[in-house]
């Protein structure tokens, strides 16, 4: 069972970087991603938005395997800044999981 992490939910809420509110789950990002990772980025962002930290941590290698190439954001009809969101997740994991800042 996944548990909601208030710590992560708060970090996302207080962040001026992470913002996926405009995402309408159309899937264009997944379709144009050169990596072809189904998780990136919309499923992952949904886990973040509802505070499922365990699920996010299960996908650490996915988070670091994003190329930050920006093809997704370039084609996102809702103009979500996807690479910035991925970078926010790296920062969160670096600080809370890897003890790196």
């Amino acid at each position: 069972m996944s548990r909601v992490s208030s710590k992560m939910a708060l970090a996302v809420k207080c962040s001026d970087t992470f913002n996926a509110d405009a995402c309408m789950h159309c899937g264009v990002c997944t379709a144009v991603c050169p990596m072809g990772i189904e998780m990136l980025p919309r499923k992952l962002f949904r886990y973040v938005q509802i505070g499922l930290e365990d699920k996010v941590k299960e996908n650490i290698s996915t988070i670091y395997s994003c190329l930050l190439c920006g093809m997704c954001a370039e084609n996102c009809p809702a103009e979500v800044n996807i690479a910035d969101n991925v970078r926010f997740l790296r920062k969160y994991i670096n600080e809370n999981e890897f003890n790196l800042s």
Binding site: R87, F88, L89, R90, K91, Y92, I93, N94, L100, S101
Partner: peptide
């Protein structure tokens, strides 16, 4: 280091 999100450093 910026791309990898090690923002403090």
């Amino acid at each position: 280091v910026y791309d990898e999100g090690v923002d403090g450093s």
